[in-house]
Design a protein around this nucleic acid. Sequence first.
DNA 1: CTCGGATGGGTTTTT
DNA 2: CCCATCCGAG
Length: 755
Amino acid sequence: MDLLSDLTPAQREAVTHVEGPLLVLAGAGSGKTRVITRRVAHLVSHGVRPYEVLAITFTNKAADEMRSRIAALVDTRGLTIATFHAFCARVLRMHGDLVGIDPGFAIYDSADSRRAVKQVVEGIGLDTTHWSPNRIAGRISRLKNQLQTPETFAAEATDFSGKNVARIYTAYRDLLLANNALDFDDLLMHVARALRENEAFLGVMQDRYRFILIDEYQDTNEAQYHIAGRIADRHRNICATGDPDQSIYGWRGANLNNILDFEKDFPGCKVVRLERNYRSTPQILSAASSLIRYNRKRKPKELHTGNADGPAVRVVEVESAEDEAKLIAEEVARDYPGGTGLAGVAVFYRVNALSRAAEDALMAANVPYEIVRGTSFYERQEIRTLVAYLRAIANPADDLAVERIINAPPRGIGDTTVKRLQAFAKAEHVGLLEACRRAGKVDGLGQRAVAAVARFVKLMDTLGAVDQAQVEPLVRRLIDLTGYDAWCRKLAAGEDDRVENVNELVSVAAQFDDEPPPDAGDAPAGTPPGDALMQFLERVSLTSDQDAVHETAERVHLMTLHAAKGLEFPTVYMIGLEEGLLPHIMAEEQDRDDEEERRLCFVGMTRAKRKLTMTFTRYRMHRGVTGRQMASRFLQEIGLTGVERQVLADADGGHDAAPHPRVGRTFNRWRGPSSGRRHKPVSADEAPGIGAAVPHDDCPYRPDQWVRHQTYGVGTILAVSGSGEDTKVRIRFPHLGEKTFAVRFAKLEILDKGA
DNA sequence: CTCGGATGGGTTTTT
DNA sequence: CCCATCCGAG
């Protein structure tokens, strides 16, 4: 097929660029995936061997999609398309010897490393409340992303806390080493460091990958940046695609500067801007652009579209989270009778806690919905344990896996017995499974315990003897020998989805067995070593997308703003647009600027194709306490053009300027019975405006109102004090902070009336 | 081993 | 408020 005819000039430029660095700044909805797939196809059809091309994505889903879309255009055999992690895992299996890594390593996911960190913290004798394994694991993860080893970090850690983290990090590293395991960050760090320190390894990689493409470059962390940069260093054929305005993983170590400085890192690079948006209406685009212009850390970019006009972006103020949810549920029920088209509706929120009210309301209104959660198939207990068996079989040194399965299903090996075995293992410098083999020599074990452990060892030996060329028979045997189904049924007590999940894993294994072995190109060089079992486990550890969004299911999709990235829906509701939630209070405290939060809002808005509704509440209950909420600053930053505002709440008299802290349910009682106008749209003329209450005297200014100041521009009123000539208003301006004015002098224009 | 209450901690989470 | 985890009783 013709690879170019249906492309815009800018897209074509990116597709046909062959030699030299290329940066594609792809605005939201600008057809980026199309450009990448065409570009790879173009390279291949112009004589580049697929074997020499490396394409990196951030998710398995993206990698799969890219592969199939390229396959529709050219022969993809030999092409490497993978996530950074999968790519590094294969590289290390292949060339681990060059780098000093046993290629039979297990891969620990975040839950595994958290457990390992916990063990280490306890082992050192630190208190796990103060030294929270979660937090420390995060800290270690960040260190690894910055390519810090325990040694380099210990050298610069001077304070008490830093020194302890260094101790934990060191012990954690040793634990993983003893278990022959790598965590997610290790996969990247080892490859990155090896590329820096090992000439032979660097040579192998540079020789092979003459062309590399990195998608979502704005989300790369330090380690990934090094990997890409070092490999591309010789041939300089690196193509980075991404959008600084959609960088939302800074808190996880992504470094926005990677994309902002790309031109400096690769002088002479070509830059292509894709600014035409194929997704949204001009109204949505105008509001989103207006918002993102408040950011400084970006590459100026103007999105435009040829799409037809749509409805105005709606900003709706409601009384409570329940009203907010009800608004959506009732509107959706009204607009989609019979449920047809529901797949095109999504609800986004900043934190998972906000999903609950929406769920309740949708359920009450009988609207089918689905929560797109992080908890995936492989994180379920029954699956994790089953996989732990497989891991222990593949890698008997994996103590974490052995510990998990030693008494699951229960077989009479209690905590005390495990503790004794562990102590013995530590003293003898052997693994836990090896300690089990020598249970007879372990002090303090009674006859009964020794017998139970012996049964476990026998089980593992039997399983170990099963042919590992195929995974499914092994899994079946395992389920059989352990009585796994019966155990699951017992645990499930009522819901039997556990057994179903187990069956699902059997099918996954069967499917895996049926796949043709990866062709040579999938591996960095030749086919990776390791049997089917190890490859299966690798797939399992590096896959979290199993709960992929069923984009076709006729249901409303509920998800966090982070989960929304990369998706699109005709109708989008964004809820909880309130100060403290979006921007989130924690994010603000940590980063000291609100730009990533603004990008998050931008990402959410630009998911919408036609209809975008953003809501905020006056009162919201958080951790059992109902608090007064303020409209998000982002709602004023989206501007006034193409935006319509509604107030669907009582004009509740009695408020004064100060926030009313209220507790629990007392709020409703306090407010009194006055729900006459609830849930009825208020016409522009009546609408008192964002967050406005009925004025308590003649003063026209009210908290949450938007006003324009002659010199400072548009801001939100925070509080009104005094009366008559002495009336003062406190106003917050974006970027300028808060200021107080005497209304007698300041020329304030009220903006939000009928905006 | 399993159940229940007490206790503590609660942003987001591509791999 | 909602949960995951811990610990003691049966």
